[in-house]
């Protein structure tokens, strides 16, 4: 049985290698001048006054794909919460606080607000410079966990009412859907960026619906990461199996 599997793997691998090698000569040259898709995407993003073409592709030209990616993250976090919940034969133990050196504790408390603001900055400037909802949301969620690193888990739990983050995760997903449906109600298409004025190029309020969709994604990602890390932290720090079970 094992040998059969190895043979199957070898045949599949050889086939894939042959196809990839055959495809290589057909690739455009590295760093060439002709970018048919890129040129069209840049023209479309300039028409909609979005300075960052990647944001325009993600949240305007291919906003439907982003909806799919967002639901993947949502479903993955939901799965983690279900899998890592407290089982019947487990109980919670209070974690003992750790002795953290004073400079480290101070550093964590100073960097926490800086990281939060940086996260919001990255979300808000998604349509202007590299970045956007996903990157900014992850940074903001990571910032909160400086409380665990610099103080202890109890301090993090006090500023992290989990129900609020679970609700805001779901609300953010709904907000993205509602922004898409608004296009349908206005008589165009789902997630079509035609409702809002495009604004002045290269300012914070440019790009039509792109900043709003970015904000929804930022909220979704930040809440999802906080919930995800909370389930992992619970398992690593608090939940214990009953003795003798």
């Amino acid at each position: 049985m094992n040998r059969l599997r190895l043979w199957l793997l070898a045949v599949g691998g050889a086939g894939l290698t042959a196809l990839l090698v055959a495809a290589c000569p057909g690739l455009p040259r590295f760093g060439g001048r002709s970018h048919p898709y890129g040129e069209r995407a840049v023209r479309a993003s300039l028409d909609r006054h979005t300075a960052n073409t990647v944001a325009s592709v993600n949240f305007d030209q291919r906003a439907y794909d982003t909806l799919g990616e967002m639901s993947i993250l949502f479903a993955a976090v939901l799965g983690c919460v279900v899998l890592l919940r407290q089982a019947r034969d487990e109980h919670r133990a209070r974690p003992e606080p750790a002795a953290v050196a004073r400079p480290v504790r101070r550093y964590a408390l100073i960097v926490l607000p800086v990281a939060l603001v940086t996260g919001l900055y990255v979300v808000a400037h998604g349509q202007l410079s590299p970045g956007g909802g996903f990157q900014g949301g992850v940074v903001a969620a990571t910032a909160l966990h400086l409380l665990y690193l610099g103080a202890d888990y109890g301090a993090l739990e006090r500023v992290r009412p989990l129900a609020v983050y679970e609700t805001s995760d779901a609300l953010a997903v709904c907000a993205y859907l509602v922004l898409g449906l608004a296009g349908v109600l206005a008589g165009t298409a789902f997630l079509a960026n035609t409702l809002l004025p495009y604004g002045t190029f290269n300012t914070l309020s440019s790009g039509g619906a792109v900043p709003l969709l970015n904000a929804a994604i930022g909220m979704e990602v930040a809440s999802a990461v906080v919930v995800l890390l909370a389930t992992f932290l619970d398992q690593a720090v608090e939940i214990e199996e009953k003795q003798g079970s």
């Binding site: 750790a98 400079p103 720090v237």
Partner: peptide, 24 residues
């Protein structure tokens, strides 16, 4: 400032910044 401060503090944390971490 973030780079230099962060690295010095992280070095400090490595050389005995966390003591008595048991459950937490």
């Amino acid at each position: 400032a973030l780079l230099i401060g962060g690295n010095v503090i992280a070095s400090r944390a490595l050389s005995g910044g966390f003591q008595g971490v048991r459950g937490g």
